[in-house]
Structure formats: C-alpha cells, structure tokens
Amino acid sequence: MGDEVYSDLMRELKEGKYVFTGELEPEKAGDVNEPIEMAKELVGMVVACNVTDNPQSFAYVNSMAASYLIQKEAGMECVYQLRCSDRNRMALLSDVLGAGALGLKNILALAGDHVSLGDTKDAKPVFDLDSTTLIKLIRTMVDEGKDLGGNEIHNPPKLHVGGAAAPGAAHLKAEVGKVKRKINAGVEYLQTQVVYYTDVLDKFFNELGKVDVPILVGIFPARTFGQADFFDKYVAGVDVPPDYLEAMRATKAIKDKEKKKEEVDRVNIEFFTGFLEHLKGTPAAGCHMMAVGYPRIIPPLKKLME
C-alpha cells in the first residue's frame, strides 16, 4: 500500500478508527434521485457508501455516473463499484481514468455476477480481467502512473482500490487462496460478502491468518422479508439463519405501517446484537452495512458497537 491517502474511507482505516460504510443502489431509471436522497440521510452515519454496479447483473444507471452525482449532490463519499463482467481491459482502464477525473476516491474491484443471472441474459459476458488483475491494474495506474502496456498516464488518478472476500464460500481454502492473491496484487482493503453466522466469520479469519489489509465485514439488516428471502435464495455464499428469516416473515402480517417498521427494527436489532458483539472480538476493521433503502437501522446498530 502506498503512503498517500486520497479518501476519507482510507484515512479512517489508516487511523485505526472503527469504520462504517453503507450501500446505495442506482436503479433502472433516467435519474439517481432516490440514491441521492438516501445518501443525504446517511451523511454522518457512515464514512462512505458503495454504489453498486449492475448488481446481480441487472442493468441499472452507470455506477460511475451515479457515484459522481451522489458525491456532488449529497456530499457522501462514494465507493465506485466496478465489475469485470461488462467491460474489457481497455474500457476498465478508461473508466478508472474517468473516475479519477470525476473526483471519485475509492473503487471496489469486482469480477461481477455472470450476465446470464440478470435481466440481459443474451449479453456477451466479458471478464477480460478478473478482480485480481483489475486490482493490479488500478494500483499500477495510481502508483506507477502506467497503464497495462506500460504507457505513461499524465496526471494519474488518485484513488484507492478495495476487493471482496466471501467468508461463506463453499470451498474456503480456495477462496482464501484467492483473497491472498488479491493482497499480493495490492488491494488496500477488503470487504466481505454478507455474513450472518459468527462461526462462518471465525473460520474465515482463522483460515486467512494475520494480514496487513483492513477488512470490513458485510452485514445485511433486511428492511423487508422479501430482501432477506432474496439473499437466502439467490445470493451465492450467503445463508440467512432460519430463525431470523422466520421472524422477518412474521412481520409481513402486521397491517399498521408504523408498527411493522418497529417490529422489523426490533427483529434486526435483536439478531445483530449478538453478531455485532461477536464482531468486536474479531480482527475486522469495520462493518459494511448493506442496508439498502434502510438508513434508520444504522444508528441503533452502530450504537451496539460502542
């Protein structure tokens, strides 16, 4: 990792502060008004927000454009998610330069879901680079001011690169081998896929051993039963505990909107109290709260970490 610090997220991580990040999801729309409004609510609660790039391969507003507008309109630092699924190495390189020019300070480098899982199934999947080689490309651009061909970049972009890890991966040893590869490639921080089970997290940290890269653990307090159910059914490597899922399902029957909100919050706080208490004892450098469209849950969850 270079010594330069370009973003608030990286400054807090380097200072050893316990970091909280959030998540915003641009949609299939001609504007990003909703994530901007969400971002405004999250200011002060989290240091930065990930802005998703075609999550689950559903084609939405371009993540770079959304990140720029959110930073500009809401004053929220963004983590621009960048997937290899849809762009070849030339487009990735050009997007990283674009991100630098727009003042974006963090990129989360991802392989991305296969296009056949989303809503544009006949698209040609690209994957010219993978997450590891994208991380390496970004570090080479930022630190050495060079592109893949060794060509010089005038005024190189000033940004940080993070990577993902999947503690719940079916083959943990292979997953950890890949994470170590990302560390070798120069990743500056890691963010895990959503975890609900403390033993899954412990096994991951044990297998990984001591590393110099800060790790944010992903949690997903669901706003609705549907969100929790979707994660359980469709997101690989994530198991949602049946008790939590059932408690969320029960909230569906509550007619009164306010009472329903209170009950959803209660279920989440009750479940995450134990999880977050456990998290304090792990090597995690912070928590990525993937609470899309659910900013009100962040303050009480943060309070649990105090």
């Binding site: 392989a111 879901d113 056949s116 993978d130 991966a169 083959h171």
Partner: peptide
C-alpha cells in the same frame, strides 16, 4: 463459466458447482 484467470469467483455454490449452472463444477475449485 466466467473464464477467469484468477478464480474462484464469489459465486461458487454450496456443492462447489458453478454460479451459472448447478450441473457444472467450479473450475477453480
């Protein structure tokens, strides 16, 4: 399934099958 030179991706299924097809093994595993 993704043709990755540095895998596995985060989509490996519980039984080490590919995220895009439950009948195919994860190449990186």
């Amino acid at each position: 399934g993704k043709g990755l030179m540095n895998g596995p991706c985060g989509g490996v299924r519980v039984d080490n099958k590919c995220e895009i097809d439950e009948n195919k093994d994860c190449a990186w595993v």
